[in-house]
Design a protein around this nucleic acid. Structure first.
Lengths: 353, 353
DNA sequence: GTGAAAGCGCTAACAG
DNA sequence: CTGTTAGCGCTTTCAC
């Protein structure tokens, strides 16, 4: 039945034509379910296809048609559960629309992002879904613009379509929640893998809330070798130290759930009680935050909706149904209150204002 | 500078040739960095490429060369952190070897798996990495065999190369750990998304351990609507009930970490203390199990090594460096002891044997 | 309704 | 060292 060689040559449309006793283009017509082929002929062709185990060559088709049924998906970090969840949705949505998808995990920009996009462009993907984007690389942006339809999902760039969550409002909600709980010194934890735009918006929302409450922004934390760290007067200060003293930090708003989970873990390992000594609020709505043991209060992004609208917009561009200036859609978010944030304890215990 | 239309036609090798004032094949020669092109000519071509923003068309190249630089990666479920971690590694490894990768998230077989593989085959992927596989679909297997190099990573099939963790031994270690802790009634929790082979091996390892200790296998749990469930004498029995009575279950070995995490969460929500009332051990070594609040004892698979060896084997097949019968590599695993498993409490408190 | 023929953009001999 | 040419497998007019 099978020959010895590992990978036999694939039968072509010509082989099928020969077996079916028809011409090449008739086979093509059958494959493309083109109207106007005798039932008889069609059946003969189908039989030949079956018999040969023929499988259309997408490469040849794409070359002839001058277009592919391929999406590129740019992901920040699959280790981040939220990103993985989004990637899964993109794959599902693409498949449902008949598109295959190529992934590139960029780890927040840099060389991986550039080569990944380059690769997608060379494969002439019909469109690219950006689940993360680091605009740092100028040439990248220009090689994208006008070359291929693009949509930013959960992040955004002014020069292309995007579907984003209400980052700023969400961050404000999160921070207001903390303020309502009685916190006065609220730090902001940023994660390198959150792309520029989201980061800025979330930072802005955080500041909005503080402003309205007449509070000053707390320290800005990033991840250092040994946990969250900030800089005060040129000197590095680690989180545990920030938790002491009279103007001490009592809460942290993390710009994403991955960071919030890590922060929680850091606190646990450092003997810092959450939420007793430190309240934590995240952003994204990653499934892991819903675990009873984690129970992180977070701002949930409507993942399905973001991805659905994003791919819809992309396909509309690809098919020419959508033209003109970039469209931006903002989807509302929701604060999911869990147990990682509570009223601050400490010296001013229960004292209001 | 730019025309009005959304996606301008891509310049071709011919455009470059025209601008550089050379022939088509000379351009091809410099692109393929073919030896024997004058520096002068090369520079002229490079300049033309730069000027036009030329980007080689991978589709045309692939068609002409009769091969692609594309991998297909079949994933079980990106929502499962272990799968996401593995997928990320495959992408990284592929990119490092110059391969782009197409993903298909199959959710454990069925239609999604079949169409995903079909799609990869039509795109003439150079090889497929299976991170999960459901052998249920007979025709699938036959359309794969001999058609394209394939490697199973973390799972396996007798008809193709595979790199797997020592599933059976790992499961035995996990179960022995539980036995050593004093457990006598240990249930096995299976997850639908673990493919046949891994499931069977892990079940076998679990039984090995019980056998050696002269114990009988405990109930076999699966996920029902309302948590883990088993069948006793044709009647469904939920986990909480199993935890009562004289021959009650005191520990569960979950065949994967995703299930273990869910089980832990189920226990937390049901007021079942872990590890006080119930010990839990998982399998995979997903990062999430390492969180201080989760702290699930698990059998860690060497992810990097699995993926590295897997892609190596695949590339060797693709390049013809490896031929003949399927090779199977088994990589050793390691029990990572954390806090989800402890000595059983209860009536026979501290009583030995 | 079916077949012949001209590409799609590139590679890979093979002449010059 | 460079140019000419014949495909790769399929689509897509356009005659028959």
């Amino acid at each position: 039945m099978s020959s010895g060689s590992r990978t036999a040559r694939h039968p072509t449309i010509l082989d099928v034509a020969r077996v079916a006793g028809v011409s090449k283009s008739t086979v093509s017509n059958v494959i493309r379910s083109f109207e106007g082929v005798t039932d008889e002929t069609r059946q003969a062709v189908d039989r030949a296809i079956e018999q040969l185990g023929y499988r259309p060559n997408a490469i040849a088709r794409d070359l002839a048609q001058q277009r592919t049924q391929l999406f590129g998906t740019v992901i920040g970090d699959l280790n981040n559960p939220f990103h993985a969840e989004m990637a899964k949705l993109v794959e599902r949505e693409s498949a449902a629309r008949g598109y295959a998808t190529m992934f590139s995990n960029t780890l927040g920009g840099g060389a991986a992002e550039a080569t990944g996009i380059e690769m997608m462009l060379e494969h002439r993907v019909a469109g690219i879904v950006f689940l993360a984007f680091s605009a740092r690389d100028r040439p990248l942006r220009s090689s994208l613009k006008g070359r291929v339809p693009v949509v930013f999902v959960g992040c955004s760039e002014p020069w292309a379509d995007s579907v984003v969550a209400a980052d700023r409002r969400g961050a404000r909600l999160a921070t207001e929640h903390l303020i309502a709980l009685g916190h006065r010194q609220i730090a902001f934890l940023a994660n390198a893998l959150v792309e520029e735009h989201g980061h800025r918006s979330r930072l802005a929302g955080y500041r909005d809330a503080l402003d309205r409450a007449g509070l000053r922004p707390g320290p800005s934390l990033t991840w250092g070798e040994e946990g969250p760290i900030t800089t005060v007067g040129g000197k590095p200060v680690r989180l545990p130290e920030l938790l002491r003293g009279h103007s001490r930090v009592t809460a942290v708003f993390s710009s994403n759930d991955f960071g919030a989970v890590e922060l929680l873990d850091f606190a646990d390992r450092s003997g810092i009680g959450v939420p007793d000594e430190l309240s934590v609020v995240g952003f994204d709505g990653a499934a892991v935050t819903g675990l009873s043991r984690i129970a992180i209060t977070t701002v949930a992004q409507p993942k399905e909706q973001l991805v659905r609208l994003g791919t819809e917009a992309l396909v509309a561009r690809i098919e020419g149904r959508s033209t003109g200036r970039p469209r931006r859609r903002v989807i509302d978010v929701e604060l999911v209150v869990r147990r990682s944030a509570a009223a601050p304890a400490g010296p001013q215990r229960q004292r209001r204002r």
